[in-house]
């Protein structure tokens, strides 16, 4: 399936969870926050939230800033 991830279209296996996606991206355990189609997916629900073709995801971290 196709996901829009931080503005880029990427192919992923069908019906994976948010946790699966983080694993594929080698981001398991990293402090990131995820928004799916405009709604936050809390960390506690990463393993239970199944993604669907066409989902739009934003994934952010804290960086240096003023």
């Amino acid at each position: 399936m196709k996901l829009s991830l931080n503005g880029e279209h990427r192919e992923f296996p069908d019906s994976i969870t948010v946790a699966d996606m983080l694993g594929i991206l080698e981001l398991t355990g990293k402090r990131v926050a995820i928004e799916r189609n405009g709604e936050i997916v809390p960390r506690s629900q990463h393993a239970d939230t199944r993604l669907a073709d066409g989902d739009v995801l934003e994934m952010v971290v804290a960086v240096g800033g003023g």
């Binding site: 952010v60 804290a62 800033g65 003023g66």
Partner: peptide, 20 residues
């Protein structure tokens, strides 16, 4: 301390140190 919130650089140096 203030921090900014920015998109993860996907695929780039997953093991890289972070501000935190």
């Amino acid at each position: 301390v203030t921090v900014a919130i920015r998109r993860v650089n996907i695929g780039q140096n997953a093991g890289e140190a972070s501000l935190l």
